[in-house]
Write a protein that binds this DNA or RNA. Structure first.
Lengths: 323, 323
DNA sequence: TTGTACGCGTTATCAC
DNA sequence: GTGATAACGCGTACAA
């Protein structure tokens, strides 16, 4: 329609190479008139770049992740990248399946909030630039961004100890999840620093949800083992714990104090308001994109593999009413 | 490596055409040994199909949408489709930008929880099979799945009326959002059925978030206009309203009763527990995929445009403590 | 049953 | 400043 070759159209649309202003305008008019849109697949095939990344999360329905997802989506979009979303349910098989699917679509990069066996990840990911969230894999040069979960656990338990609590229970996350394990370590750290020994009967592992928090607290109550505080590995568990205590007639925080982790919206809205450890989810997402973007850029520039960067955010204790 | 032509590899991988069992095995072994993965872009270019869909939502961080997103992701993945996610913030420009980006990537279909001017959508979407969530566009043969928002609003207000409330306020959603408008209609319906006239001073519009609910309720309180109940267009608004009432020393539900909309997790966890209208978010997502899948299949089969299907889910009132 | 050759819609490298 | 033309990696008639 503009009376030019495909090559010229390409040059106009990409702003590459010299094009006479007059032809340039003719082409743009034709593009407009035809509503022409370049075929991204063909472009990707020719350039080896898709401007698309993959984001795999345990579960977007878990209140911690939507903010994180927005963080990466906002930042990625600003840079002209689209994001493919996958939920793994903390299942290594699903995680692997998502990664495969994304690689087939030739994503330029991957952001993974991993769960299971990290040893499998390097092979799955291959040469694709990758940023890990809440997990590092020793000996694998991938970037990571995470909050210092161990410190967060220490903060939470130290607060409880400072309030005079001595028999502190821990509602842990799922077995094999790194962030959960680190929070449990922080729990033990704080106790030992105070000269106390963790009581294994007061520690449990399980899914990161409300029902699990409720059930495990009830079980604790029924076990008869004495405790005067609970550190839950996330806010959902904490809210479940509060509920279970209240239903059993135990006042919170009077009889048992509760501290959560994450500081999701919910923490501010329940009564008593939840004391918790703030993790800046949106920022984690945005920073993960930032790391990934620089990896992608380096790769495009043919740069060799730079040393991995571990961004570690500092958690902050938010004292409200539950402890 | 298997000593065969590319064509044969293709036949093996796609299960098309005849292949001798022996060659078939040789090929599969080579594929395994090399870790070969077909290039999805090239495949898409050749077949005109990407097995990828786009999902555009107002805001994944709004608690109603994560469950919906999981509904579509789970269902789509089961069918071998990946999903690209986009947040529009109820901004027509962002929405349009997402749709363009997705079309460039040749998505096979689109699921859109739209906000603004629906008139623009047909042009933006073009020939791409599309399912609308919570909105129909007259004269545009696109499928839609939604809950009956008007009925939901009626249910909520009828409950308030049955409890003896007469001066009912309405915290509406953003102007121009169809679901919000329908809930407001339901509000008026119920009032008129009871022989009451809505008081414009008790009705407002605004964003679907906690802060807005809190602020607008406070403004209501300060205006001095009397009211004994609030119907909020979503749960976040409702929780904000409850908070504002409590902070002003008004007991909920004694002095003012509050009903929300959506039944997000939060509704069950605040005190008093929120009475609300349940909208099955996960199912909406799954059904939206189902509609889209059949459109995509019909298109692949070369079928003409069938009449649009509007799936309408029935909302249900969940009575808890706030009303 | 298998291989050859073309087309899918771009970009990049050359000529001109 | 512009146009041929060869990749990019697949699917698929068609020939063998």
């Amino acid at each position: 329609m503009a009376g030019v070759s495909p090559a010229t159209v390409s040059r106009v649309l990409n702003g590459q190479g010299p094009v006479r202003e007059a032809t340039r305008r003719r082409v743009l008019e034709a593009v407009e008139a035809l509503g022409f849109t370049p075929n991204g697949l063909a472009r990707g095939l020719a350039k080896g770049v898709t401007r698309t990344i993959g984001l795999v999360l345990p579960d977007i329905a878990n209140p911690y992740f939507p903010a994180l997802a927005r963080g990466v989506e906002d930042a990625a979009r600003a840079a002209g990248f689209a994001v493919i979303l996958g939920n793994s349910d903390n299942d290594p098989e699903q995680e692997a399946a998502h990664i495969r699917v994304m690689r087939e679509r030739l994503v330029d990069g991957l952001i993974i909030a991993s769960s299971g066996q990290p040893q499998r990840l390097p092979a799955l990911v291959g040469e694709v630039p990758t940023v890990l969230i809440d997990r590092r894999v020793e000996g694998w040069p991938a970037d990571s961004v995470s909050t210092d979960n161990r410190l967060g656990g220490r903060l939470a338990v130290a607060h409880l100890l400072a309030r005079g609590r001595r028999r502190i229970a821990h509602l842990g996350g799922p077995a094999g999840v790194a962030s959960a394990a680190d929070r449990a370590l922080g729990f033990s750290d704080a106790l030992r620093e105070a000269g106390l020994e963790p009581d294994p009967r007061l520690v449990s592992q399980g899914p990161f949800d409300f029902a699990s928090g409720y059930e495990r607290t009830r079980a604790l109550l029924e076990s008869g083992v004495d405790f005067d505080a609970i550190f839950a590995a996330n806010d959902l568990l904490a809210v479940g714990a509060v509920q279970a205590c209240q239903d059993a007639g135990l006042e919170v925080p009077g009889r048992v104090a509760v501290v959560g982790f994450d500081d999701i919206l919910l923490a501010r809205l329940v009564r008593p308001r939840l004391t918790t450890v703030l993790q800046p989810a949106y920022r984690v997402g945005a920073l993960a994109w930032e790391r990934l973007a620089s990896r992608i850029a380096a790769r495009a520039a043919g740069g060799g593999a730079a040393a991995p960067v571990d961004v570690q955010l500092t958690p902050r204790l938010v004292v409200r009413e539950s402890a």
